[in-house]
Amino acid sequence: MGSRHISLKDLARELNISISTVSRALKDHPDISREMKEKVKKLAIERNYTPNPLAMGLLKQETRMIGIVVPDLVTHFYASIISGIESVAKENGYFAVIASSNENIIKEKESIENLLKARVEGLIVCMSRETNTTDHFEKLVSRDIPLVMFDRVCLGDKIPAVIADNADASQKIVEHFYAKGYRRIAYVSGPENLSISKERMKGYWAGIKACGITPDENLVENCDLTFESAKTAMNRLLQLPNPPDAVYGINDTVAFGLMKAIKEAGLKIPDDIGVVGFTDEFHSVVVTPALTSVTHPTFEMGQQIAQLFFKSLTPGFQAETLIVKTQLVERESSNKSQS
């Protein structure tokens, strides 16, 4: 029979008995004789039979699969969160099926539909940067499909979520720059439709106010979260009549783009311009100078996401948003010499 999966049907055919008899024999059903049980179990061992969990799950109308959709599978931020989700899923007898939207709304919708066709029992989603509508998520809610969102979220009154303390962390970045002697503090945000862009922008302005700095709209730029668009945004800031002496990127990829543009302009980090990122990717300690960044407890965040998912399966559950505390990790990129 080669290396293909041996089914109950194969065992039944070989023994010339019904599939239900094979199934009940393997489960030690009292209606099946001891002799038949031994015969079935012996053949199952010889043929390396193992139950097909998906097929069994479909019979019970459950597959014990959770679908996860993330913007990419390369970033350590998402990989670590997925590991945290999987650890809790495993404890609960579930496993994860993972898909990437590649930061594309069409791919996001396709991934969700494909996972539902694969009979996942619920979904965990972080929105793509292109996602500016919520109709596909509202449809899931109306169909009573368990759904938890994280990091980039929407419909907080209907969909449970786990997010970072974005506004608070953002304000702390501005205050950190100010304490280090920087005064023209710029911010390069992401697409305006994303929750993280809105929350971190709110924190940026709160930080500017808390430090007593005169607000300047010219010091705020948007990008599409890519390295190249971040470089372009930084170049616009550098061309201002009164350019910034510090800049904060909405995530580390953006911060790396900012650093590249600053270096290409012949300026020094951190003495000419300080730089801070967000998410604390592995590359933060590899770039020169090492990047000051906001770190998330990503594995623990993943565990909280999965715990919230299982909590959402209980009757009468009301959507809630859990906020995870972050930490600003100071490195050389924002630590200029002060005389």
Score class of each variant (00 low, 15 high):
Arg4Gln: 08
Ile6Gln: 07
Lys9Tyr: 06
Ile17Lys: 13
Thr21Lys: 06
Leu26Ala: 03
Pro30Gln: 04
Glu35Trp: 05
Val40Pro: 04
Leu43Lys: 14
Ala44Leu: 11
Tyr49Met: 04
Pro53Met: 09
Met56Gly: 12
Gln61Asp: 12
Asp72Glu: 15
Thr75Tyr: 13
Thr75Ile: 02
His76Thr: 09
Tyr78Pro: 02
Tyr78Gln: 03
Ala79His: 04
Ala79Pro: 00
Ile81Phe: 04
Ile82His: 14
Glu108Arg: 05
Lys117His: 10
Leu123Val: 06
Thr134Asp: 12
Asp151Tyr: 09
Gly156Gln: 11
Asp168Gln: 14
Ala169Ile: 08
Ser170Gly: 13
Lys172Trp: 02
Phe177Tyr: 01
Ala179Asp: 14
Arg183Ser: 14
Ile185Lys: 04
Tyr187Cys: 07
Ile196Asp: 05
Trp205Thr: 07
Lys209Thr: 08
Cys211Gln: 14
Thr214Ser: 05
Leu225Ile: 08
Thr232Glu: 15
Arg236Gln: 14
Leu238Trp: 03
Pro241His: 06
Met259Ile: 13
Ile262Trp: 00
Ile273Thr: 00
Asp280Met: 10
Phe282Asn: 05
Val286Trp: 13
Ala290Asn: 15
Ser312Val: 09
Leu313Lys: 14
Thr314Gln: 13
Ala319His: 04
Glu320Gly: 03
Leu322Cys: 03
Val329Lys: 13
Lys336Gly: 00
